[in-house]
């Protein structure tokens, strides 16, 4: 357990110290919050009704931005090779990386979502339900990102391809996320969507570290 916390603390510390990627992430998310309303036009009721969909799309796109950084830093500086002789198995290490990725990517985006809510003139009730769905849905996206990052860790141009691999697989999360946040057919449908969303997050988070560990081991050969 000591090694588990050591890795978690180290990665969070180095992420916060080299804060560059956090600011670019939030800047990208905010710029989406600016461009979309400008493109759609200042028609408030339309923006309000599109709110949850735009926020979910914004969060998905923003979280795909820095996704290849998850393993590349450790791969390039030799830490990944040294982990082989540490107390942690590769899947535990991937699980820590998943937690760190969620904390440094999805959480800041969720914290910033109220600002997006203001830009998209969403009422408080919808904003809160969107943030709830984001909280339940982003682990699934983080899990997919983890596997895609592991797959493309040893590629020279890996950074470009990882988001393409995640996008189609993240569609169910977006469907249930927006479906839960903006129920068309009443509250009943929001509950089912929330249940599907959380189930998916749990399953993806459970399996992703093993898939990522396998991908890492294979691409190190």
């Amino acid at each position: 357990m000591r090694a588990f916390w050591a890795l978690l603390v180290r990665d969070l510390k180095s992420a916060s110290r080299a804060g560059g990627s956090l600011t670019t992430l939030l800047a990208f998310y905010l710029s989406l919050g600016v461009i979309l309303p400008i493109a759609i036009g200042p028609d408030k009721p339309l923006l309000a009704s599109l709110g949850p969909a735009l926020i979910w799309t914004g969060v998905l796109l923003s979280s795909l931005l820095g996704l290849d950084r998850i393993f590349v830093a450790d791969h390039e500086d030799g830490s990944l090779a040294a982990f082989r002789h540490s107390r942690l198995s590769l899947s535990t290490i991937s699980f820590v990386k998943l937690i760190v990725h969620w904390l440094t990517t999805a959480l800041p985006l969720i914290v910033l979502t109220p600002v997006m809510g203001v830009l998209l003139t969403i009422d408080l009730q919808t904003l809160l339900s969107v943030m709830l769905t984001l909280l339940l849905g982003t682990p699934a996206i983080a899990a997919l990102s983890l596997v895609a990052a592991a797959l493309s860790v040893s590629l020279k141009r890996g950074a470009v391809i990882a988001p393409i691999l995640v996008m189609p697989l993240a569609i169910p999360a977006v469907i249930f996320g927006v479906g839960a946040a903006k129920p068309l057919l009443g509250a009943g449908q929001a509950e089912t969507a929330l249940l599907y969303l959380s189930a998916m997050s749990l399953v993806f988070v459970a399996f992703a570290p093993f898939a990522a560990a396998l991908a890492l081991r294979l691409s190190q050969e």
Binding site: R2, A3, A6, L7, K13, D77, A82, S86
Partner: peptide
């Protein structure tokens, strides 16, 4: 296994880097 790469995070201090590896191994 000390490879030709140093496995050190530049943004962390020397003590933090070594403390981390002490915990890991």
């Amino acid at each position: 296994f000390v490879t030709h790469l140093n496995a050190i995070k530049p943004e962390l201090t020397v003590r933090e880097n070594l403390g981390f590896w002490a915990d890991m191994v």
